[in-house]
């Protein structure tokens, strides 16, 4: 019992018999039973429409499962109170499939959002954000607004926003969908670096080339279930 508790705590994410359905439709995810240990790196693969985005949405608390139990950082999210959720979400960095950048904010302000929400000082914002933008190759676009950026540039802004707060868990939904393979590899190395610093990482992708070039375990989604790769 005590050992099981320790194990749950060491798992950043744990799914117990989780299922998802939209409205009255069929369950698009079924009997999900897996754990992501702290410090692990996983690819989440499967054909388009397999439910990769839906699975990630469950983890970043955008959606409740229709069945089962999800533990996030050891906290059972099905019993957590609503006011506890923002603090949990702040420990998760998300690169959304459609980026979800705020068009009225500059690159700098978009990337600074997680810091400001967490109550960081403007001094810290000025210190950390330009550095990171430099790192992802956007130093020249600090004051640009998303509509003026290319797809690949937007993607890098989205990634910078996801990692600026040094999250314990990083979720990336098709983060390399809009960039060529060389840039994709650079982004993967960025995730790799973060993972080495202790961040647990999940990258959803259907880019087989990318997955095969990196030696990380996979979660394969097929017909609503996870088949270990």
């Amino acid at each position: 019992m005590a050992r099981q508790h320790a194990a749950e705590r060491a798992n950043v994410v744990q799914f117990d018999g989780v299922a998802v359905r939209y409205g009255r439709g069929p369950e698009i995810l079924q009997d999900l039973q897996f754990a992501l240990p702290a410090g692990s790196f996983h690819f989440l693969t499967g054909p388009s429409g397999a439910g990769k985005s839906s699975l990630l949405r469950l983890i970043y608390l955008a959606q409740r499962p229709s069945r089962g139990r999800i533990l996030l950082f050891g906290r059972d999210t099905s019993v957590a109170r609503r006011y506890e959720l923002p603090a949990l979400r702040r420990r998760v960095g998300v690169v959304f499939q459609d980026f979800r950048l705020l068009d009225h904010l500059s690159t700098l302000d978009n990337v600074a959002l997680p810091l400001r929400i967490a109550g960081a000082s403007e001094q810290d914002v000025r210190k950390f954000v330009p550095d990171l933008l430099n790192w992802v190759g956007l130093a020249d676009h600090i004051d640009a607004h998303p509509p003026t950026l290319s797809g690949g540039q937007k993607q890098r802004v989205a990634i910078a926003r996801a990692v600026i707060g040094r999250p314990d868990l990083l979720l990336a939904d098709e983060p390399t969908g809009n960039v060529d393979d060389s840039i994709a590899m650079r982004l993967m190395y960025l995730f790799d670096e973060l993972n080495k610093l202790g961040t647990t990482v999940v990258v959803a992708t259907h880019n087989e080339n990318l997955v095969s070039r990196m030696d990380y375990p996979r979660l394969v989604l097929e017909r609503g279930r996870i088949m270990r790769g």
Partner: peptide, 16 residues
């Protein structure tokens, strides 16, 4: 709505 949802998802509390 989009702004609110993004702020909400990256961990902004309702009060913020």
């Amino acid at each position: 709505r989009e702004v609110i949802e993004v702020l909400h998802l990256i961990g902004a509390a309702d009060g913020y």
